[in-house]
Simulated assay, not measured.
Amino acid sequence: MRAGLLREILVFKELREHQSETGFVVKEYEEVFRCKGYRRKMSLVVDKDGISAMEQFIGRTIVFQVRAYPIIKDSQRVVYMNNIYEIKMIDPQRDNTLILTLGRVDT
């Protein structure tokens, strides 16, 4: 992968627990990592009738290619363009990169 392709900024957040002064435990997503990625184009799946099988899901799913960092995990969330996404799949590649499939989370 060429370094010039990495233009989009991804913010990875992880669920962490904090205890307040009164002892109440609060779970919040905190930023743990920031990196650049390349947004890949989605390809439509067409069946014999010419209809896309992924038609209803394509607007909520995006695919990114990032460099392989050991800090990236399935349980994290990703903030991209002020939208929150959960990691659906991490696909390691041979060239020390990861393909991340992200699904948008309703807030």
Rank of each mutant, 00 (worst) to 15 (best):
M42H: 07
A3L: 14
I72F: 10
K88F: 12
E14A: 03
V32W: 00
F12E: 04
F57N: 03
I72T: 01
A53Q: 12
L10P: 00
I87C: 04
Q93G: 02
S20F: 07
R77E: 14
Q65D: 03
S20D: 02
V66Y: 06
F24Y: 07
F57R: 00
I90S: 06
Q19P: 01
E31P: 06
E31N: 12
I62D: 02
R94N: 09
K48S: 15
E21F: 15
D91I: 13
L98T: 04
V25T: 08
V63E: 05
A3Q: 09
E86R: 01
Q19N: 04
E17V: 12
I99K: 06
M81D: 12
V11Y: 07
R67Q: 10
A53V: 13
Y69Q: 09
Y38A: 13
Y80E: 04
D91C: 04
I51F: 15
V66L: 06
Y29F: 15
I99R: 08
I51A: 07
I87R: 00
F33G: 09
S43G: 10
E30F: 06
M81A: 15
I71D: 12
L102W: 01
S43T: 13
R7Q: 15
V25L: 12
L15E: 14
T61R: 01
F24G: 00
Y29S: 03
P92V: 08
M81S: 14
E21L: 08
